[in-house]
């Protein structure tokens, strides 16, 4: 009912438009922000822009475990596929690492280690793709989210990241930690999502 009525009204409105606008022919380089793309190495560009949005870029597991110990984020989740390479080393450093996320204990996980499925250098964003992420909540509810990233997965620009969307029904770009400025315009991090967003290069 509504559908037919809406389409009829749209058609009646658009049919009276004398000059219909054509789809513009444009090159996506128009939206590249050149000052944000300075440099050659994609990881370096990513780190620069990711730091600008208060993300923390790390290149070793030692660096990560030291940070977690120092900030007293001692109990967390690790994607089972990353346990051998990362989770076990965090456990060896004295942290408690689970490879299963129990939603009834959502409040106990202080950090979550999951795969990033890419990154955008231009904006300093980590890409999380539902198809290849072990657990949505484990990447979201802990205070610290560690997105594990491979060098080859870093994309240069926002249009490049859109071009590789593929088939996944749910893709999220995380550009820094969760934040708000609702109260008097004052920036506060860690509203609903992670208060610390880490990108770990492996």
């Amino acid at each position: 009912m509504s559908r037919a009525a809406i389409f009829a009204k749209i058609e009646s409105a658009t049919s009276s438009i004398k000059e219909k606008a054509a789809y513009p022919d444009y090159d996506l380089s128009i939206v590249h922000s050149l000052p944000k793309l300075k440099g050659e190495d994609l990881w370096d560009i990513f780190v620069h822009n990711f730091s600008y949005v208060n993300g923390k870029a790390m290149t070793s597991i030692e660096q990560l475990s030291a940070f977690l110990l120092e900030t007293k984020q001692l109990h967390g989740y690790c994607d089972p596929a990353l346990y051998d390479t990362i989770g076990s080393k965090l456990a060896a450093a004295g942290l408690t690492v689970e490879t299963e996320y129990h939603r009834d204990r959502y409040d106990e996980y202080q950090f979550g280690v999951t795969r990033a499925t890419g990154a955008i250098a231009e904006s300093g964003s980590v890409i999380i793709d539902d198809d290849r992420t072990s657990h949505r909540l484990a990447a979201l509810s802990p205070w610290v989210h560690v997105a594990v990233l491979e060098r080859s997965e870093i994309l240069r620009t926002i249009p490049d990241a859109i071009a590789v969307f593929g088939d996944s029904p749910n893709i999220i770009w995380c550009t820094g930690p969760s934040k708000t400025a609702d109260v008097e315009g004052i920036l506060i991090e860690g509203v609903h999502g992670p208060g610390e967003q880490i990108a770990l290069l492996v």
Partner: peptide, 24 residues
């Protein structure tokens, strides 16, 4: 809107969760 290049979370959704995803 806020002077950010991108807002923190930009999500793209076109369907129910993936088969391998326990949540969603």
């Amino acid at each position: 809107a806020t002077g950010q290049q991108l807002t923190v979370y930009t999500e793209f959704i076109n369907g129910p969760r993936s088969a391998n995803q326990p949540d969603g």
